[in-house]
Simulated assay, not measured.
Amino acid sequence: MADLPLLPVSDLKQFSTADHSREFASLLVVKRLNPKTASNGNPFLSIELGDSGGSFTCTIFGDSPAFVALKEAGEGGVVRFEGKVDFYQDRFSPRATRVVVVTEEEMAALPDAIENLVETAPENAEELWTEFNEFIDEIKHDELRMTVRSVFEDIGGSFRWTPAAVAMHHAYRHGLLEHTIHMARACHALLPLYPQIDADLAMSGILVHDTGKVIEYEGSLASKRSRRGILQGHVVLGYQLVRKAGLKAKLDADRLERLEHIVLSHQGEPAWGAAVWAATPEAVFVSMIDNLDAKMGMVQRLLRQSDGSSDFTERHMGLNSPLLTKPIADSE
């Protein structure tokens, strides 16, 4: 199988049941790796592998030669995956025959390897960053604007490439920047409908709401939660960043408390990770826009990855449903 060409995930997902047991090889990132134990006591791995064009999941049992290699690679590692086409519940879920860990030196020798492995936001990152700074400049309240600026001076350039999630929405390089810009655009469009909302406070809350994710996530090829991310979470980490910046900028106590509340409540519900329910007009507003763009980010990504071979995608956990991707027919 050593002579097989390396196929991207987009090509793998073109396989059908007619290709059952067909051999293939791919260069992939280990996106998620969950060690588990079967009812008979035997260990196995539930893994997600992918590249810039998508991902798939499969199960690796403890007696497979691939088991040790994948544990060695770990989340964020790069592997040459050789396997045979198989399906589970109508999803592409191959059987691994051989897995080899790819070192950084070997990666450097492969042309365009990083670009092919790492999914990036479809919009130009430099243009997004320019637009982001324009949104900050539009905040009229001096201390609020200074608070927002101070947060981004504190966290540095990592905000520009951090994903917005590990798996759910905008889960790719520059995804956090893209998600925040989309929310700011929606804020601009919706503010005229709700004159009761303090525009500066709402925009400030949107720009800083997810900044804790810069600390929560780590990894260059695949994201995973850091120690602080696991122990505190991005909501608390973001609150800490905002409070520090607000005190430094001498933001008045009332606005600082309201800005902190936006960060603490933006996840919508405690069951979804919010520290508290949204209890100010601006917090409700920001929380709804966050949920809107998170869901539409999932939709946009599924549409981008659709190859047109099926009317529906596989079930998406965040949408709790498959997505109809077939375009609307032109009117006659």
Rank of each mutant, 00 (worst) to 15 (best):
117 L>D: 12
139 I>R: 05
82 E>I: 01
55 S>I: 05
195 P>M: 05
149 R>F: 10
294 A>Q: 04
314 E>Y: 11
288 M>Y: 05
247 L>W: 10
213 K>D: 09
297 G>Y: 11
208 V>E: 08
223 S>N: 10
158 S>N: 07
265 S>V: 02
238 G>T: 15
314 E>S: 12
95 R>W: 01
241 L>D: 00
97 T>C: 00
170 H>A: 10
119 E>H: 10
47 I>L: 12
298 M>C: 01
22 R>C: 13
123 E>M: 11
195 P>A: 00
310 S>E: 08
139 I>E: 01
272 W>D: 15
101 V>P: 00
213 K>V: 12
316 H>E: 13
176 L>Y: 05
309 S>E: 05
17 T>S: 13
332 E>F: 04
299 V>M: 14
2 A>C: 03
111 P>M: 08
51 D>K: 08
66 A>M: 01
102 V>N: 03
10 S>C: 14
104 E>C: 05
120 T>S: 09
221 L>S: 00
306 S>N: 14
328 I>L: 14
152 F>M: 07
151 V>W: 01
276 V>H: 02
275 A>P: 00
60 I>N: 06
44 F>D: 02
88 Y>N: 04
299 V>T: 10
262 I>H: 11
39 S>D: 14
218 E>A: 08
187 C>T: 15
282 E>Q: 04
239 Y>C: 04
167 A>T: 08
229 G>Y: 07
235 V>W: 04
145 R>W: 04
173 R>D: 02
198 D>Y: 03
4 L>E: 02
238 G>Q: 06
225 R>E: 14
218 E>S: 15
98 R>A: 00
177 L>W: 00
134 E>Q: 10
156 G>N: 14
292 L>M: 15
276 V>K: 05
108 A>K: 11
109 A>L: 06
325 T>Y: 12
81 F>K: 04
144 L>N: 11
93 S>C: 09
94 P>H: 03
245 A>M: 11
301 R>H: 10
272 W>E: 15
27 L>H: 01
119 E>L: 07
239 Y>A: 04
159 F>L: 15
219 G>W: 08
240 Q>T: 12
278 A>F: 13
171 A>M: 13
154 D>Y: 04
190 L>Y: 05
149 R>K: 15
284 V>Q: 10
147 T>H: 08
61 F>E: 11
15 F>K: 14
101 V>I: 06
24 F>I: 13
174 H>D: 02
82 E>H: 00
296 M>D: 00
49 L>Y: 01
270 P>F: 06
318 G>W: 06
195 P>N: 04
159 F>S: 15
141 H>K: 06
176 L>V: 10
203 M>Q: 09
